[in-house]
């Protein structure tokens, strides 16, 4: 049986960091599902780059063609905190029709994997499943993964600095994407 006293400090710190990062990502998801969008906004760094590329069907090996570029091409999302704040203002008008009446969203986050720590910045990968249930019978779902860069923050524990959202879709099948990932 493992004796706690045999765990070295570095390993312990890593486990605590994993725990803290997971808690942050779960909280983010909960704020979105509880429609506390302005509180979610507070978890984002001022210089956030929030990016969801489109994904092409390409020949095996043409991997550099798979994702659309955020330098030159059209993406599903490619924006900063100011644009996200505008989206939230729009949803909160109460007359944004694809979100009026509001949806029942459930964001499920898993496979949280710390891939690098550099000073205050943590690279973390995770997966999401987002279920939308609306009106009587409208159901939309999005599945994918995210490559995030978090930065430690005294007030909110972390802030999200970069997020690349890798959606498992080619043609966007839901008619509107009215949540965040």
């Amino acid at each position: 049986m493992l004796e706690l006293t045999t765990v070295d400090t570095a390993s312990l710190q890593r486990v605590i960091l994993q725990h803290d990062v997971e808690q942050f990502l779960y909280k983010e998801a909960r704020l979105l599902d509880e429609r506390r969008l302005e509180e979610w906004l507070e978890l984002l760094a001022e210089e956030l780059h929030y990016w969801m590329p489109m994904r092409r069907n390409i020949k095996f090996g043409d991997w550099d063609l798979e994702f659309t570029s955020h330098e030159t091409e059209i993406n599903w999302f490619d924006e900063g905190k100011d644009v996200l704040a505008g989206r939230i203002r729009q949803i909160n008008t109460g007359v944004h029709w694809p979100e009026e009446p509001v949806s029942r969203f459930e964001h499920i986050i898993s496979n949280v994997e710390l891939v690098g720590v550099e000073g205050d910045e943590i690279s973390v990968n995770s997966k999401f499943f987002c279920y939308q249930n609306r009106l009587q019978d409208e159901v939309n779902q999005w599945v994918g993964r995210r490559e995030d860069l978090l930065r430690r923050d005294p007030a909110t524990k972390f802030k999200l600095v970069k997020r690349k959202i890798i959606l498992a879709q080619n043609v966007m099948l839901p008619k509107v994407v009215n949540t965040f990932f």
């Binding site: 505008g86 729009q90 509107v176």
Partner: peptide, 14 residues
């Protein structure tokens, strides 16, 4: 045009 058009656009989502 990215933030205006289509399913992720401010305007066209309505």
């Amino acid at each position: 045009v990215q933030r205006y058009n289509g399913p992720t656009g401010f305007f066209e989502s309505d």
